[in-house]
Design a protein around this nucleic acid. Sequence first.
DNA 1: ATTAGGG
DNA 2: CCCTAAT
Length: 563
Amino acid sequence: MKVDGDGRFVPATDDEVMEVEDLLEDDKSEKVEDAGQILECVPTEGTLFGKPRVKISNGLPQSEGDAGYTARLEYIEEVLQKVKREERLRLACGSLNYPSAYVDGDRKGSDQHGRLPVTDEKFQSQISLQEISHCSPSLNENHENEHGSLGNFLKHPDKSVESESSDAICTTSKPDFSMLKGDICLDNLSIRELHECFKATFGRDTTVKDKSWLKRRIAMGLTNSCDIPASSFIIKEGKFIEESSQNVVGVSTIPTAEALNIECSGSPTTYCLETKDHHHIEEIELDHGIEDQHEERAAVKRIRKPTRRYIEELSEVESREYVPKVISLNKSSVSDGVSANSIERPSKKVCSDRGRTVITRLDSLGGSGVQVPCVSRVRRSRPRKDIVALVFTLPDKDQNPSVKDTNEVEEKNLEEKPTDSGNASDDNAIIVPTPKSGSRRKHHRAWTLVEVIKLVEGVSICGAGRWSEIKKLSFSSYSYRTSVDLKDKWRNLLKASFAQTPVGEGMSSRKHVSVSIPEQILLQVRELAEMHAQIPPSNHGQGKLGGVSSGSNMHEISPAVCL
DNA sequence: ATTAGGG
DNA sequence: CCCTAAT
């Protein structure tokens, strides 16, 4: 992949975004790197996500651990490319005519010029078309070519696992690549790009302008773990590589097989490795984890005091814990022991039944932050297990366009990855112990985009129906999400994917329930559905299964087709 | 124990 | 999500 280093700047963008922000001072230093590099245009419209995925045919072990990672990464890359393209386009057009259109229409309402907001989709497709004419003379060509080019572009795990692993460890001095051979370095991305990545990863927008925060979040989402080094954000093979000469985290030195099972435990500063064979668990303490916390804490925006309602709900919902979200009025003060021992748990979030996030609470924190009179909810049992994917609520996000207040309270929930299965899980399971009546609700666990992607990935590998397989493969770390859940979710996805708005209409105002699920994913679902001859009941027109979708999947279960 | 479906 | 029937 080629990076255009001619130092073109991305004007307005960040400034525009960087509105008056309190507690973001530390971010200024990073501004410099906002000059974006521009990626080479690659003819990959439409097909995007999931296309050149992992080769499942060989059934190589590498993919089994986190096959979804590849998909996620690819998706991110696609998005980034798109962003860059748009960026270029803007520059080409004399810029500023397309102010912040890239940001969700629903967020921005209308721009400063009073132009009517264009729907995301429309805008993007517009871009795409133009770009297509510019960059890919032969767009409708066979996809094989495309695949080829992508091949160089992305490094597929299969070959890399062994040969590259050692490489990964030693390698340390190549600061200037942002994406290379399947690795991704979030460090070089502008806020805007980070925003897109965020959206791509979690399916929703964010308005957080703090780079560190964004990077961390995206990183977490991408790797499905919380072992995010403080220094840099280069993700390689789903693991982080520290660029600096700081202590090299154990991750990269861990045998791949095991590495795949890395899970966090106790606190973000601890790794818990679980070997398949043995039930071995060893923990490694890391010292930079602490400052991580500080960083993050400082980075995040302040929230408003919890309302009474909040408190009530909180007590009702014996919710799970989350990672510190909001807080700290001054980062420096936090520097004392506070986080050292009890690193996480500063804040809590509650989800209503519909999976919508309601509020955040700050358990008692060392002096800084708010203290919520939350009903005596002291954590019982051992410290929370790790945290993994950000919960973003699939449906809705349309709440209020005026980002100002609400947004920041966004669901930065972290789902915990129950390393412990079953009873041990204390609080999270909202299972009303009512053996008698028998009606216990499992507390709706909103599906994360990451999870959805994993699911799709799983289906593509194992095939629909083999839920337990998929469970083991892709969801081993999620103790909730039973095979049945997977099945149900798939069913829903199926329905959603084939329920595409028949006539392109009214999408603007009220987006559907599945809004947050990237079209690409739905597209993939559709493809898979077809392959498996899963035809949803009432599918009349089937909308547009045109060019892109069919034939573009040369991966999957039918090697015959590929060769 | 897993799946498929209906509720 | 839950529950049940069928494998």
